[in-house]
Amino acid sequence: MSRIGYSLLYICLGLVAVFQIFPILWLFMFSLKTNQEIFAGSPFALPLEPKWENYLKVFDGGIATYFWNSIWITVVATVLTILIASMATFAITRMKWKLSGLVLGLIMVGLMIPIHSALIPLYNMFLNVNLIDNPLSIVLTYITYNLPITVMILLGFYTTIPREIEEAAIIDGSSIHRLFFRIILPISAPIMSTTVIINMIYNWNEFVFVNTFISSEKYKTLTVGIQNFIGQYMTDWGAIGATLVISVLPIIIAFLFFSNKIMEGITASAVKG
């Protein structure tokens, strides 16, 4: 292709890149500015001198609680989702029983349904068992609603495990639990890491369940917590910017380190759907 043609293509790609990245850069910049700088200056200007006080203000306001809740809920839900999904996928793909197809179909129901259709009954059920405003309701719903996608990603790998591995283990006298925990789980580590990433991103960013089931500040996660913060800072743009940066930074840092794995996970979660 001609040189001009190539340059035009690069300009197209570059414009898309600017559109995608500039709002985020702008956010980082105004999180370090004073209101005067933001309101009077150009949106392209770098901060005159970075106002780290904005971040201190947000930490003093108590964002750490939300941050910690996001971390532990994300980790606990992710670990349990992957364990439960792996066990189910193992039984469905490797063991011999008549209803395996039906059970798989039932799990896959969760892939397409709008969660809002289940929201009122879920709220009512949790209310009846005293789990409203209890983080357990969040962990349970995160596990359940991420099971279908997790099973779907695991499925492809589990069907390719050679029969010989199981046969050898069982003839050697291994129990089925040993086979699953000591052999199958370790060899599925690469695909498990893909599901870990997908689960972590989903759980870290989840909003509706927390917003509906949790009312105490001490249990709120970042997505809902930053709503309060921003409401309370109203016109203090620097503090709002700092709040948003703190909430997105872990994901962006994770992306810098694991971008290939993350892209793989996102592709896997979509194409098989």
Binding site: I84, A85, M87, A88, F90, A91, I92, R94, M95, K96, W97, V103, L106, I107, V109, G110, I113, S117, A118, L119, I120, P121, L122, N124, M125, L140, T141, I143, T144, Y145, L147, P148, V151, E166, I170, I176, F180
Partner: peptide
């Protein structure tokens, strides 16, 4: 060993229970 009904139940029950109680039943209840 690979068609042991107890093991199959044990391995699928957690997923199945969660899906039925927290997805299927709420959809019908809605």
């Amino acid at each position: 060993v690979m068609s042991n009904k107890w093991i199959i139940t044990l391995y699928t029950l957690p997923a199945l229970l969660l899906i039925i109680v927290l997805i299927v039943v709420p959809l019908i209840l809605s």
